[in-house]
Each structure stands twice: as structure tokens, then as C-alpha cells.
Design a protein around this nucleic acid. Structure first.
Lengths: 192, 192
DNA sequence: CTTGTATTAAGACCTGCTACTAATTTAACT
DNA sequence: AGTTAAATTAGTAGCAGGTCTTAATACAAG
């Protein structure tokens, strides 16, 4: 790379390491055509830790996030619950979905929040979604806070009809009606 | 930790590092109350790389996986596509959802596969899901291969009705009807 | 021509290893 | 008990990718 000003180099360095934290100083020195020492100085000034720490951070964060994204009981954060009756969950997009590339939150995340809320408010060991009717009203953008409110519409035996409405600043962006079953042992319906 | 047999120790070591790959040899030595060298020998015999490599692997894989789980165009793998008509996607559960704790695949993953397939077969720059009716027929267990087939039922202008059926070994586990819109610029419906 | 910033160099030391050699302990067998 | 094999521990050299410090250059600007 052609010689550029210190400022430019440091800016590029930050970008470079943000998108790929795996570079070692030597490689960076070659990329920017400066000495290793210069890279080290740059890192110091910018407060960028060494490769091994960068990698560790990525591993830790990604590990945690994967766990939370994929294994969390409830997608989003449960802020209020009234068993067998109603519940509210909040999901910060961009915190929970921070690796999303586009600025639009993809539908299955919104679905996941609503669905897991619908299941969570049922007072039983295992609750399974049997079916659902859902509707997306407008796109949700990264950074918007999704507030999902669920309400049990009616209950017949172990079958619940739960209505979920998801809003952004009071504006309805998603609604769904979930038929959820409470079960004790395994029967024939999808756990969610 | 009390002294145990080599076999037991190596077994525990593997488990320990599986759930937390960040331990250094010294820490492991203390945990198992053996010398560092013993830990190194164990790692050798078990083919377990050093901490820094383990961490790097986690970082790389988690990075990739996060990207694929959250930002992939299609959740699952697109194996056949006939634009504006039909498509097939395969999702290996436990490969893509490997941090799942329970043995049951959670519903929003199945939904995500179906929904993204429904969107993918539409021949347009941007396709948005407007609404959906879905049904879960039976739970899907980790390890089962989900084959989703989508078919455009009818098309009116920019509005498509796509039916998706997801099967495991020929058995229907999920079905859904998605109303999808093709759009050029931003209009008012959720991108998925 | 000096002053200040930027860059490069050099050396000691650090962590968490690998690779190798060798000694010591423990358990097993006849 | 005595011998043998397996398991464990110890010790050394060397490596990668650094930190931290001190010092020497380069170079542009007043």
C-alpha cells in the first residue's frame, strides 16, 4: 500500500481490524508498508489490543451471543408476565442482532420474539406452538426497540389462543395469533 | 480435584474444553491436580490443540456461524430453485443450530427456513413477507434433516401466495402459506 | 538550522505454548 | 518381593506474538 498520512492510516487500521480482527502486526505492517513498530504505536494510540486479545474477545462475545440467540428461553427480554394471561417482551434490535448486515430486521427474528413470548406465558412445563397466523405491517429497522405484548384470548383445555402485537414506539409492526398447547410429556406438536 | 484415572481425566478434560475452550494448561493442571506436562500429554493423545488455537477456532467458526445464522440470504441450503414457481431448501439441524441445548429444534428456526425460502424463490430484488399462516405438525429433533419445498400457488401483480411444506424423511412436520410481495423500492412491508 | 513530529530500530522480558530428553512414581504381574 | 511397563513429573531449548523502554533517524516547517 502506498504511503499515506498517519491519520489516514490509523483510520484504515481501525476499519481493517473491525472487519477482520485476525491480522497480526507483521501483516498489518506489510499492508500499510510501514514498520511493525509503527503499527504498534498506532494500536497504542487507538487503544487497540493485540491479536490474541482481539481474537479472544471475538470468541467470547460470539459464543455468548450465539447462545443467547439460539438457546435463550425467550427471544428478547421478558419484562412482565401474568401466567396464562398476558406478557410483555422487549427486544433491542442491533444489540441482539448486531451482525445483521442490512438495516432491516429480518422477519424471523420478529417472529421468534412473538412466538417465544406466546409460549412463555403459558403456565406449564412444556408449551408447543401448534399453528399461527401472522402479519407484518411494516419493516423494522436496526436500532428500533420491539415491544411485543401477548394476551391469551381464550383457553380450552390444554389449548390456548394467544394474540401477540409487536410495536415500535406505539406503531404496530407485527401481529400474530398463536395456537399453543401445554403438554406434560411428549405428544405430537412442535416445542418452541 | 481428587486424583482419578487417566481415562477418566481425559474424558473430563474433553468435556471441560468442549464447554469452555478458554482454559490454559496451567489452569487445567490445577483443576485436575496434575502437572502441566500431564495435561500436555493428554492434549497430545486426544489431539486437542493449544488454547490459542482453540480460541481462534471458536472465534472463526462463531463469526462465520453468526453471519450465516443471522445474515444469510436463505436459512438452510438452497438446493433447487425455479424462479417465481418453486424451490427446495435443506437444513441440517444440529449443524446450523449446534448450540441448542434441548433435543428439540425450536419453532422459529423451522419458520425461518420456510420463510426465507418463500422469499428466495420470488424473482425480484426485494421480496417482503406480508403475512403467513403456519402449522407445526410434530416436533423436530436435533439431527433431523429438514427439507422444505415451496411452491407459488398463485400470483396477482406483485403479490405471491407461496405454500411451503417441510418434511423430515417424508413426514410432514410443518406447513405454511406465505403472502409475499415483490417490491422495487422501499414501501411499507417487512423485508424478510 | 534548529525544533517537533513521525518513523524505525534494538534489546530485554512476558505468556503459553511445542519438542525433546530424562528422571521419578505408581501400578501390575509373576 | 522384584521386575517391568505405564504414567507422571521435571527441565531445557526454542518459537510466536507480543509489551515496554530507550535511542537513533527522517523529514518537514518555521
Amino acid at each position: 500500500m502506498k504511503k499515506i498520512s498517519k491519520l489516514e492510516r490509523q483510520k484504515l487500521l481501525q476499519e481493517k481490524l473491525k472487519e477482520n480482527p485476525f491480522f497480526i502486526d507483521k501483516e498489518l505492517a506489510e499492508i500499510f508498508d510501514v514498520s511493525i513498530q509503527t503499527i504498534r504505536l498506532d494500536r497504542m494510540e487507538l487503544g487497540i489490543p493485540e491479536v490474541r486479545k482481539r481474537i479472544k474477545t471475538v470468541a467470547k462475545r460470539a459464543n455468548d451471543q450465539l447462545k443467547s440467540v439460539q438457546s435463550e428461553e425467550v427471544i428478547g427480554e421478558l419484562v412482565d408476565i401474568n401466567l396464562d394471561k398476558a406478557g410483555i417482551s422487549i427486544m433491542e434490535t442491533s444489540k441482539e442482532l448486531l451482525l445483521e448486515k442490512s438495516k432491516v430486521v429480518r422477519g424471523h427474528h420478529i417472529f421468534a420474539q412473538a412466538n417465544s413470548l406466546a409460549v412463555a406465558i403459558i403456565d406449564t412445563d412444556v408449551a408447543l406452538t401448534g399453528s399461527a397466523k401472522i402479519r407484518y405491517n411494516r419493516p423494522v429497522y436496526l436500532g428500533e426497540r420491539l415491544i411485543a405484548k401477548a394476551k391469551v384470548e381464550n383457553k380450552k383445555g390444554n389449548k390456548f389462543c394467544v394474540r401477540v402485537e409487536t410495536k415500535v414506539k406505539g406503531e404496530l409492526v407485527f401481529s400474530g395469533e398463536f395456537i399453543v398447547f401445554s403438554v406434560e410429556a411428549d405428544n405430537g406438536i412442535e416445542e418452541v
